[in-house]
């Protein structure tokens, strides 16, 4: 039996703003992938929207490039908004 292609599943939760990667599954076509995602990842009322993407269509960064890609940001503290005084009356920040 030929295996169904792999799909990556993204679910937007009840009060979440963005779709979040929750896992992957097999399905023959996008419609089936959405239905399978509903059954595998949204059985307990987890979501209000589902995105499916063929795993083959995802390009990922190479773990070996980690140093080159991310290390230069480490010593640039001025990029973080930590130099402001928050006025005491500002709440819910």
């Amino acid at each position: 039996m030929t295996e169904w292609p792999l799909w990556e599943i993204f679910i937007r939760s009840q009060n979440g703003l963005a779709h979040k990667h929750v896992g992957s599954l097999h399905a023959a076509d996008p419609k089936m992938a959405i239905e399978n995602a509903r059954d595998v990842y949204a059985r307990r009322n987890e979501g209000i929207s589902i995105w499916v993407v063929r795993s083959a269509d995802l390009y990922a960064s190479d773990p070996e490039d980690k140093g080159t890609l991310f290390d230069p940001a480490k010593n640039k503290v001025y990029r973080h908004p930590t130099f402001y005084h928050v006025p005491p009356e500002t709440k819910h920040l």
């Binding site: 599954l25 097999h26 059954d39 059985r43």
Partner: peptide
């Protein structure tokens, strides 16, 4: 026939 369909049928 597949894990995913197993879940669908039992759901």
């Amino acid at each position: 026939p597949e894990l995913e369909e197993d879940m669908a049928l039992t759901n």
